[in-house]
Computed example of a mutant assay.
Amino acid sequence: MKRRAGRQATGTALARYQRLECTGLWRDTPEAQRREVVVRMGEATLMLTDPRSEEVLSHWSLPAVRRLNAGQRPALFGPGEDALETVEIEDEDMIAALKTVAAAVRAAKPHPGRLRGVLIGGTLTAILAVAAFVVPGVLVSHTAKAVPAAKRAEIGQRALDDITRLTGAPCDGDLGLPALASLAERVFGAENTPILYVLPEGLSRPAHLPGGLILLPKSLIDEESPDALAGAALAESVAAQGSDPLLDILDHAGLKASFDLLTSGELPADALDGYGEEFLRQLPVTVPDAEMIAAFEAAQVPLSPYARWRDPSGESVKGLIEGDPFKGLIPSPLMPDDDWIALQSVCSG
């Protein structure tokens, strides 16, 4: 059996799924002569094509496909119990995939008290079950894209809870927290402002979690000004735009937990156990210098203080320092001195 990359299609992420392909013998009516065809499992259909001209002969809805001769070989399928068309298939992979679809369709039927359908409908669940059989990574990717904002925020907080087993609880000094929130609003604006957390130990670099959570190491509040702290938060938000942290969480949780999230809207209670160790070992996301410079210029935040905090020697961040849009200028203070002093006390109370 060959696998081909699916073509991009508008309006659905399913077009990126890889397609299963095999040969079969097709009849459009019971009296017709059998005809060799190429059977392709597409995004939501089973497509039958002429192997020479590649003309599409028939389209069948995947959830409607039925096995008509259980336990016999070659397997006989039709686009419904009473359909006239049939196709004989001997390829074991294709037979197994179609069996998986049928099982998923049965499982997708509504059950009282369940949250099935929170994220997707039953038909999409069936197709995604095939993705779990064929390409588990695609299922994880699609699940991450399907999770709504409120659920992402909940998962982000659950991940933070596991991380703080190792780092200690986020700093929450009474004077420091309002100052930290004020700095976040200055850097990101009043809308869609991420939530900033300063962790007391164990975190050596900025990091991000689902739900707009940005984690910052305590060493940033030991700097002379808030510029490095603001820059670290801004740089991590830029990195987050190109790196969905939910993918790493779902990879850790496993395929079954990802499928549970997709079909029921919930991750198992133990899905994030031990995630903190894995999170703290992750390498930082690489962002092109030009993208970083543009973000700092738009936010009116000097870039050099963050770059030199990241590498005091300046060698690995030379492009950021030279491209600092405020190099040689004296930018307006990001916050009053009193607020910065208060922010520096966030881990003290």
Rank of each mutant, 00 (worst) to 15 (best):
L272M: 14
A83D: 04
P63N: 03
S204T: 11
I155Q: 00
R186K: 12
R165M: 04
P63Y: 07
F279R: 13
W309K: 11
L48P: 06
P51W: 05
L234A: 14
I163R: 01
P136Y: 08
L250G: 10
G274Y: 10
G202C: 14
Y197L: 03
K145I: 07
V37R: 11
D338P: 02
A129Q: 08
T123F: 08
F279I: 02
L280G: 12
T193R: 13
L124W: 05
F133E: 10
A149G: 02
P312C: 10
L261T: 04
D227H: 12
W26C: 07
P312G: 06
F259L: 08
A149P: 01
S58E: 15
D339Y: 02
T143R: 00
V87T: 07
A257I: 10
F296G: 11
A179G: 04
S58G: 07
R152I: 04
V346S: 03
L199N: 05
S304M: 15
A150P: 00
D270G: 01
V135K: 03
D244I: 06
D248L: 12
G122T: 05
A108G: 10
D270R: 11
R27C: 11
S258I: 02
R19M: 13
E154V: 07
P226M: 02
S53C: 09
D339M: 06
I120G: 07
P79I: 08
L76V: 13
K145D: 06
E224M: 12
L320F: 09
A103F: 05
V65L: 13
V317L: 10
A83C: 09
P325N: 06
D339R: 12
G24Q: 07
A240D: 15
L213V: 00
S58Q: 15
D260Y: 05
L343W: 03
G6S: 11
R281K: 14
L234R: 07
R7F: 11
V138R: 06
L229V: 10
E278V: 15
M335Q: 03
R34E: 13
R186I: 02
A207V: 02
G24T: 03
A150D: 14
D339C: 01
L250I: 08
G212H: 02
P51E: 08
A179R: 00
Y306I: 03
H111T: 15
P110Y: 13
T123N: 11
C171R: 05
V56M: 15
A83L: 10
A271D: 06
G274M: 09
Q33L: 10
T100Y: 00
A307I: 03
Q282C: 13
S345W: 00
P312E: 13
D227L: 05
